[in-house]
């Protein structure tokens, strides 16, 4: 008796927890407002505007490692193919960044 009750409770709890997560993933996939991809040694989009508190995620889709560096603000580890880096912007401003391995690669995040 006791064990069945606990299981029922468990299933209900998991379902409740899953619902908002699934919704969030679906929204992100549709709009993708917080993602920067690296393709062919280019940050895309090169300029991104986000709100304070939002998290931007960079993904390297090249066969060569890249980094994301914003002097004094953030510095990713080296991202190999499919590697990602995320940074949450807590203050408004213009964040110019570049790849420290291929410095001709530059981008900017504007935080409002």
């Amino acid at each position: 008796m006791t064990s069945i009750n606990r299981r029922d409770f468990g299933i209900a709890a998991v379902a409740t927890l899953l619902l908002p997560v699934v919704t969030a993933v679906a929204e992100e996939a549709a709009a993708d407002p917080l993602a920067v991809h690296i393709d062919n040694f280019v940050f895309q989009p090169q300029q991104l505007t986000v709100k304070v508190g939002q998290t931007v995620t960079w993904t390297n889709r090249d066969d060569i490692p890249h980094t994301v560096v914003c002097a004094g603000k953030f510095r990713s580890k080296t991202m190999d193919t499919d590697g990602t880096f995320a940074f949450t912007f807590t203050a408004a401003g213009e964040y110019k960044y570049f790849c420290s391995l291929h410095p001709h690669m530059t981008g900017v995040v504007k935080v409002e």
Binding site: V69, A71, K96, Y97, F98, S100, L101, P103, H104, T106
Partner: peptide, 14 residues
């Protein structure tokens, strides 16, 4: 002379 030109690269530079 062996030189190192891969350190402290500047944004937008070579």
């Amino acid at each position: 002379v062996g030189l190192v030109n891969v350190v402290d690269l500047k944004a937008g530079g070579l």
